[in-house]
Amino acid sequence: MIQHMLDGILVGAILSLGATGLTMVMHMLRFANFSHAELLSIGAYSALVFDAIFKSALPVFATQIGPLSMTLALGLAMILAMGITGASAVLFDRLVFRRVREKGDELSMVFASFGLALIIRNAIGLIFGLHTKLYSQDIVFATVLSRDPLLLVKPDQLATLGIALVIILALHLTLSRTNFGFALRAVAENPNLAQVNGINLQKMIVTVWVLGGGLAALAGVFYGLSNQITPTIGRDLVLPIFAATIVGGIGSIYGALLGGFIVGLAANLALLILPSGYSPSVPFLIILAVLLIRPNGLFGEART
């Protein structure tokens, strides 16, 4: 039970990071972006590439940090991956979404996002191969937190959770204390009024893509660290991430952060009563439950 909760919180942190960017884009551009989860893959794979480059160029970076399998090289690679992923998100918007948007066909955006997701996911498979990869071949043993009940946790997982919590705190401070944060929330609530108040919408759209891409890259690297890297990361995580945004209420950044943890916990606790084969269905059951009990989510408002 406690082990499931622990695992749930760790997965939840990853989902929170993924859902935050998704909810902002969905609210601002008004479409369900099915390609968002592919940004996690782009982040995970670009970190893999930079990690290999750093390790071979500067062997000193290849040493592990403390008890972690994570190296300094991977830490730097992660930061670069965030930039690359943010830039990719902006590029996809330029190439596809903005052009569909400008045709005035908002409903087609969701089709476009599905098509784009297919292209990205399978192009990654073609470039990097279909088999799984790992950041580190070394086996890091889980630390026993307690023997009765038996609780195991990997140092990497704790580091992941720690970094995710720091990022979430930084996001919270930005949103609640800075003019930039107010502007982000203002655009999410009412883009037209934000524009009247001097906010440049085009710039803000780019900012939201960069931010969403960066957070997705982090989530992707963390997922790769605690599981493995495969081209199907996006396919496997798209539904849990959407579930997190619906739990929190589409458009609510705080809702997405909390929703990620709720979905992570619920999915892991559900394994106590459901055979593990059913775990891909759990996010859908969560979505159904939210739609039945509280359709607009924890923090969402009814919108048209």
Partner: peptide
């Protein structure tokens, strides 16, 4: 310009609305 309806950000506090306008 003061729009007729939806002319404030409901999810922000009064102080945050003003801070945004004064930025």
């Amino acid at each position: 310009y003061v729009p007729q309806t939806d002319n404030i950000f409901r999810s922000l506090t009064v102080r945050q609305n003003l801070a945004l306008a004064l930025r």
